[in-house]
Amino acid sequence: MRVRVAFIAAVLGVLGYEVAAQPYVGSIVEDISTPLAFPPDQDGLTCTGLVWNFRVDAPVLPGNIKQPEMRVHLNNLVLPDNDAFHIEIADTSGNVVETLDRAVLAGRSDIWTLSISSIAAEVSVFGCDALTGLAFEIDQIAFPFEDLELESLYGTSDLIETNSYTGADSDLVTESASSVARLSVIKDRTETYCTAFRIGPDLVQTSSHCISDETDFCETTQIWFDYHKNEFGLPITGQKVRCLEIVDSAAPTQADTTILRVHPEPHAAYKIASFTPDSPQEGDPLFVPQHPGGLPQKLSIADCVRQEDMRTQAHPNAYGHTCDTLRGSSGAPVFNLAGEVVGQHRAGHTNPEVTNCLNLATLPHLLDLSTGVTGQTTTASAEAC
């Protein structure tokens, strides 16, 4: 086996394959030159209802934004002694994205808001206590740019909007895909995107290689359910939740799987995915709902099957598949046509000149970390080609 793996690595080097099992970097963080500080000058402020409001605009460069979306960073947080205060984060239409109160802010010195689906955010402060102890600065903004990199397409792209699929298995696909969510995390002045899926009442699962730093990963991580395009082609979002803690994790070289606890608990409409320990066989049809590039949910189902070659066979913890993905699809569940999870997408390629390269999915019996099985050590790389 050692000789075979070395031979395969040599072949890949000659062919110029580029390995990749990476999230998609889709947003940048920019400083506000003069932070917006609360409390401002007290003149004119009252302690009933709204006491302060400010519009924060994203410094969008024309042509560089893929869709209206931004996050705002609140820093140097100080909370009052009592609870008669809250901060509302809304879009420019007045739709409240989240409410920040003591339950959310306690013990924190800073926080990134959930994403606002516009190029400006309305930050509003309410309550008497806000005038007697609440303090914070708005010092950074994260906003997206268009730079989708090719990865993992097998032949030509067959990716479609999930809710546009009308095949014979559309009901099963729709139900299964409701478990799938977009995950994003801010780290080192960029925001990266992966895919996750619900596996318990308050648990989601994603790829371990999407976890940049276990120490503070959850501090900036958000998960979007039901993020898709409507009948008019406009992106809409269901529930947005925060990461609370990393429950369990298996290394990228093993199962490449991490379980997160989220809050609040996702709505019952979002299915809890079910696993089967049985691996798909060569040629078995599959489908993969996913969020490539952090975009509204896409589906790979056409020409999406298990397939093996000499490269994928070198990975004892994974199998090969022909389902189309892009960067940011990492962590997406691979379903069989019974709606069971039979894998989790973990790796593909980034060579735009080579599109007949198989992708990798983790073997199903390694995915459910609650069983205590967290993968097997192997000397083979976790990437496909």
Results as ranks from 00 to 15, higher is better:
7 F>V: 12
11 V>S: 10
16 G>A: 10
30 E>H: 06
32 I>T: 09
35 P>K: 08
38 F>V: 05
48 T>V: 13
54 F>E: 14
56 V>K: 04
56 V>W: 07
62 P>W: 08
65 I>P: 09
66 K>N: 13
71 R>L: 10
86 H>Y: 15
94 G>L: 00
100 L>M: 07
111 I>N: 07
134 L>Y: 00
143 F>P: 03
146 E>I: 13
153 L>N: 10
154 Y>N: 10
157 S>W: 01
159 L>R: 02
162 T>M: 05
166 T>V: 11
170 S>P: 04
175 E>C: 02
177 A>Q: 07
180 V>C: 00
183 L>M: 10
188 D>C: 00
189 R>S: 13
196 A>M: 03
205 Q>S: 09
211 I>C: 00
215 T>E: 11
215 T>F: 03
221 T>G: 01
227 Y>I: 04
242 R>A: 07
244 L>K: 15
248 D>A: 15
263 H>R: 12
285 P>F: 02
286 L>P: 01
290 Q>A: 07
305 V>T: 13
309 D>S: 09
310 M>R: 11
310 M>K: 08
311 R>T: 13
312 T>Y: 06
314 A>L: 10
315 H>G: 01
316 P>W: 06
338 A>Q: 13
349 H>W: 01
352 P>A: 07
352 P>W: 04
354 V>S: 14
357 C>G: 15
368 D>F: 01
373 V>S: 06
383 E>P: 04
383 E>G: 14
